[in-house]
């Protein structure tokens, strides 16, 4: 069955006809053409599909499409909307926190959500926030270092 939904993705407004049994991940990738949320496990385990939904990081593979009616969604494309990279993106590059890049959009959205909630997280808080984001090539240390770097720089006036 089709539902007409309206949602805001990265500040842009969309009105779409979506299937009941599709997920937000499918809607983003197939109907808005925003392909940064990746389809990994489709089971809530890997976090490659992480987006920020109404301010909270969630697995878009576990959100039914019609539920996104009225939602505000942020994907990694929102981070460099003005044409300049977000400090987290700069730090990921600087710390070589990206290899194949498949996990990176999800990692960045989880990190962004963490910094929105706790501007100066401890390493433990960072690890906790990333439990649901798996990376199979970079390893987690560089990613954690990159986030710590940005978190530390929030101290500066």
């Amino acid at each position: 069955m089709l539902h007409e939904i309206s949602l805001t993705v990265n500040g842009d407004h969309y009105t779409l006809a979506v299937h009941s049994h599709h997920t937000l991940l499918q809607v983003l990738r197939e109907q808005t053409g925003i392909t940064s949320p990746k389809r990994g496990c489709e089971n809530g385990e890997c976090g490659a599909c992480t987006v920020i939904l109404n301010g909270l990081p969630v697995n878009s593979c576990l959100v039914l499409a019609p539920e996104a009616d009225g939602a505000v969604v942020e994907t990694v494309e929102s981070l460099n909307k003005g044409g300049t990279l977000h400090p987290l993106q700069e730090a990921f590059i600087e710390h070589n926190a990206v290899q194949c890049g498949f996990c990176t959009p999800g990692m960045l959205m989880s990190s962004k959500a963490l910094l929105d909630r706790i501007p100066n997280p401890t390493e433990d808080q960072i690890r906790d926030a990333l439990v649901g984001n798996l990376c199979r090539c970079t390893g987690y240390l560089r990613i954690i270092e990159a986030i710590l770097d940005v978190a530390g720089s929030c101290d500066e006036p």
């Binding site: 809530g44 990081p57 990333l130 439990v131 649901g132």
Partner: peptide, 9 residues
């Protein structure tokens, strides 16, 4: 329970 994303849902 689970992870941050799961706990938000």
């Amino acid at each position: 329970m689970g992870n941050e994303q799961v706990r938000n849902r």
